[in-house]
Each structure stands twice: as structure tokens, then as C-alpha cells.
């Protein structure tokens, strides 16, 4: 079989240039993060990471992520079930609407939440009367994080559930399965890997969101500082090693995300074969 670009010379040039460019453009920054974090040795890295404010920032980031994931899961599964199993007017519109968070600049996302739930917004103003403050506090951070991450689970599930069709589920209903049993015994085993991948993406984005969170957080050290905001402050204070120590933690999560994705894809490929 003869194929375009299979001549050894063409092939070599293309592979080498692709690898070099990718190494320079993608791998070098990754290496630089860890090189900077450990520039003054493991001990300094550890002191930076176990610093009181860093620990508080890690805690807040984990807290926000742990609350975000279940919300995105419930919404993602419900939306995917709705648009792939039923046809109704407005189905296409709904599918377009959930892409909004991907198109909107994170700063704009933060801004619209600030306008609505901030003290000057009508809901924020009303809540203020009850002494409830959402913005510049963790609930605001949680809300914008949910906003920017909500499409991931639905996005992973919809194409898969569309391709699988609803025959299995219809059979189960005919055999008398109740709604919950149907979901747990038939749907869930079919979608579990896509669901897991959706959660991994949600997690990566929730941990690392910067633009939207920086608008609504107020970045109070030790209180409303998430890890990305914390590293920004350290960087602005010219504490480069400190900033990169936090960055290395986030980069580690990113690497775990990539590894998880690769292993899920490998599993899927093996199942097909």
C-alpha cells in the first residue's frame, strides 16, 4: 500500500520537526515548572508547600473541587439523559446553551456572577438583608467554578449515549425495571468510563480555574485564596520559588489527568479489539 508522505526522508523530516516543536513548546514549560520549584532544593520546596497560607489555599481548592464535582455529575447525567433519550422542542437549543461556559471569557463569567450576587446586584442586595454574603467568599468561588466546569460531564456523555442508543434501556423497562434500577444496572455500566473521564476533566478545571475565580474571590490570604490565586500573589511578590512550588502541585494534578486519560483510552481501545 502506497501512502502520501511515506517516503523515508519526508517521514523523518516531519516526525523530527513535530517532536522538536512539541518539546520546545509544550515539554520545556513543563520541565521549567519543576526546575523552578526545586531550584533551591527539596527542603525549600517543602517549606513553601507546607507554609500556612499555602496549606489554607490547598484546603480551599480541594473543598471547592469536592463540592463542584457532585453538582456537575448530577447536572451532566440529567442533561445527557434528557437530550439523548427524549425528543422535545428546544432540545437543540439546550445543547447549544450548555456550551456557553466554553465560549465565555472566564473574566466575563466572574463579572456576571459579581453583578447578580454581589452587594449591588438584586439577588446579592436581597441576601445582604439576611447578612448572607456570596461574593468575595467561598460560595462565590464555588458558583463560578461550577459555571466554568458544568459542560465537561455532559459533553463526554452526550456523544456516547447518542451512539449507544436506548435499546438496552427500553428492554430493561419492558422487563419491568424501575427507574433507579434501570440507571444503576443498565445505563451506568455503559457510560462509566466516559463519566469518569468527565469527572477527571471537571476536577482539573475546578482545581485550576483562575480568571473567573480571581474576579469573585477578593483573594484574601488564608481565607479566599485558592491555589492558583495564591501562586499569583507569590509571583507578584517576586517569590518565584514559592510561586512555582504551588505551580508544581497544580502541574502534578495536570500530569495525573493526562495519565488517567491515556489509561482510559487504552482500556477503551482494548475493549474494542
Amino acid at each position: 500500500m502506497q501512502r502520501i508522505g511515506d517516503a523515508p526522508r519526508v517521514r523523518r523530516i516531519l516526525v523530527i520537526s513535530a517532536v522538536l516543536l512539541a518539546a520546545l513548546f509544550l515539554l520545556l514549560p513543563l520541565v521549567a515548572i519543576f526546575a523552578q520549584a526545586f531550584a533551591q532544593g527539596v527542603e525549600v520546596f517543602w517549606r513553601n508547600v507546607s507554609n500556612h497560607y499555602t496549606v489554607r489555599a490547598i484546603g480551599l481548592t480541594l473543598f471547592i473541587t469536592v463540592l463542584t464535582i457532585p453538582v456537575c455529575l448530577v447536572f451532566g447525567v440529567a442533561l445527557a439523559w434528557l437530550v439523548t433519550r427524549f425528543s422535545f422542542p428546544g432540545r437543540r437549543l439546550l445543547q447549544t446553551l450548555i456550551d456557553i461556559p466554553f465560549a465565555v471569557s472566564p473574566v466575563v463569567a466572574g463579572l456576571v456572577y459579581l453583578l447578580l450576587y454581589g452587594r449591588n446586584g438584586w439577588i446579592g442586595n436581597w441576601l445582604d438583608g439576611y447578612d448572607i454574603q456570596l461574593m468575595f467568599a467561598w460560595p462565590g468561588i464555588l458558583m463560578v467554578t461550577i459555571f466554568v466546569t458544568c459542560p465537561f460531564v455532559a459533553r463526554e456523555l452526550i456523544p456516547l449515549m447518542q451512539a449507544q442508543g436506548s435499546r438496552d434501556e427500553e428492554a430493561a423497562v419492558t422487563l419491568g425495571a424501575s427507574g433507579w434500577t434501570l440507571f444503576r444496572r443498565v445505563t451506568l455500566p455503559n457510560i462509566r468510563w466516559a463519566l469518569l473521564y468527565g469527572v477527571i476533566l471537571t476536577n482539573a478545571r475546578a482545581v485550576g480555574e483562575f480568571g473567573a475565580v480571581s474576579v469573585v474571590s477578593g483573594a484574601i490570604r488564608g481565607q479566599t485564596n485558592t491555589l492558583p490565586l495564591h501562586l499569583e500573589q507569590l509571583y507578584q511578590d517576586y517569590n518565584t520559588v514559592g510561586a512555582f512550588s504551588s505551580a508544581a502541585l497544580l502541574a502534578l494534578i495536570a500530569l495525573l489527568t493526562l495519565a488517567a486519560k491515556a489509561s482510559l483510552e487504552w482500556r477503551a481501545a482494548r475493549q474494542e479489539a
Binding site: 512539541a22 509544550l26 515539554l27 514549560p29 513543563l30 521549567a32 515548572i33 523552578q36 472566564p106 476533566l201 482539573a204 482545581v207 485550576g208 480555574e209 483562575f210 480568571g211 492558583p228 490565586l229 501562586l231 499569583e232 509571583y235 510561586a243 512555582f244 505551580a247 497544580l250 502541574a251 494534578i253 495536570a254 500530569l255 489527568t257 493526562l258 495519565a259 486519560k261 491515556a262
Partner: peptide, 17 residues
């Protein structure tokens, strides 16, 4: 796998790096 790094890496981390 490296191709997905920019989506997985927090933007602030990419920025300072």
C-alpha cells in the same frame, strides 16, 4: 498525551511559566 497538557494545566501556571 502531551497534546492535552494545555487543557489540563491551570492557565495561571502556564502564565507564570
Amino acid at each position: 498525551a502531551l497534546m492535552d497538557l494545555p487543557f489540563a494545566l491551570p492557565t495561571a501556571v502556564a502564565g507564570i511559566t
